[in-house]
Amino acid sequence: MAIPLQAPDIGIARRRSRPGERVIVGLLALCGLLSVLVTVGIVLVLAGEAARFFAKVPIVDFLTGTRWAPSGGRVDAGEFGVLPLINGSLMIAAGSLLVGLPLGLATAVYLSEYAPARVRGIVKPVLEILAGIPTVVVGFFALNFITPSLLRPVFGEGRVFIFNAAAGAIAVGLMILPVIASISEDAMRAVPNALREAAFGMGASRRVVALRVVMPAALSGITASVILGVSRAVGETMAVTIAAGNTPRLTTNFFESIQTLTAYIAQTVSGEAAAGSTRYQSLFAVGATLFVITLGMNLLSIRLVRRFRQAYQ
């Protein structure tokens, strides 16, 4: 026997169609779609122009060449070995990590495990302000303070270039410090107190609790913060353009001037590379390289975060 589908009348209103709701859902979906479309569009443009560039400059030469010397303006000549630029970006990333990681982690441990609530209430907002300083200001600070008042007096006028990788790396390190500190601190504070109590209860000191209980339990969040920091360092443009210079150079000397992938793009875009010239197209090749690096980093971070994620109920 078929059961009548009509609801018995128990005072509940019958199902109604709500056209307004559908419109809103549609609009929201469109917004979501927009970001996907923009991403796809950027990737397509990057890939298209980069392909034209690689038609002129073999991709192997591009990836293995050790000299980056695009000729100016309208002449289709020059050398396009991207290694010096990658090297510059990696130097900034590594150097900034050297500054930002220990300071950021120490800050996070202090805030999460040691600081009284009052101190944390002051330090955390200050960190957020530090994260909010425009990068161009940080770069300017590096050029006008870090290099002349810090690096040169310590390491010698003659050794330290006016534009140098160290200043850029320190500047970027200061920028990623709040990122690492803030995300790591959130991860550490999310570790349940029961774990701390367990360790304290068997005679662990605060240091042991922080370093051997809380940090391992928060490792996935800490890893995420570090990768985010590195991504930010690799993508950072203004501060390194100002502080680290624009001299593509395959070096390991932090006191020399270098050029990063991003700085090259900034410099060339504001220059006079004619549309369609090799130099113009090289922008897209460098952009695509940058994109691949950050994409790889994001993928790596997802994997690491999964791997280190520890369930703690």
């Binding site: 349940p192 029961a194 774990l195 109590e197 360790a199 068997m202 339990a217 369930a311």
Partner: peptide, 12 residues
């Protein structure tokens, strides 16, 4: 030593 209300083993 102390044993707590909820079992709280380390994630190890």
């Amino acid at each position: 030593g102390m044993v707590f209300q909820k079992p709280n083993p380390f994630p190890k």
